[in-house]
């Protein structure tokens, strides 16, 4: 199944990726190839088969005790941040 350019652009937007117009045909083509390839799954008979989200059977979520184990390390954590002021991460103005 070939993806249209509009579909590729829609997916890119949903994924917050900006594709160069020059790259678009390449993504259009390769994504169409991939969609064809994975479309092969359609032929598998999976009637009555439950989806498997985890590779190990029978495991359940473990719970942790409700304890505060973390300290304030925001100076350290914000060393990787491109833009901070007064302890806040900065982004362009968000309009609600």
């Amino acid at each position: 199944m070939a993806l249209t350019r509009a579909q590729v652009e829609g997916i890119a937007h949903l994924a917050r990726l900006e594709l160069d117009p020059a790259e678009l045909p390449q993504y259009e083509q390769s994504l169409s190839r991939i969609v064809d390839f994975i479309g092969e799954l359609e032929r598998a008979n999976t009637a009555g088969v439950a989806p498997m989200a985890h590779p190990l059977p029978g495991l359940a979520q473990r719970l942790r005790a409700d304890e505060v184990t973390e300290r304030d390390e925001h100076d350290l954590y914000q060393r990787n941040a491109p833009a901070v002021a007064s302890g806040l991460y900065l982004v362009p103005k968000v309009i609600e």
């Binding site: 942790r64 184990t69 973390e70 914000q78 302890g87 806040l88």
Partner: peptide, 24 residues
């Protein structure tokens, strides 16, 4: 009204200075 967050051990107290209760 837990002491720590749902998926981490950071405190949930209200009103702390920005990002001082945000762990990794």
């Amino acid at each position: 009204a837990t002491r720590s967050k749902i998926f981490s051990g950071a405190a949930t107290a209200y009103g702390a200075p920005p990002n001082t209760q945000a762990c990794l």
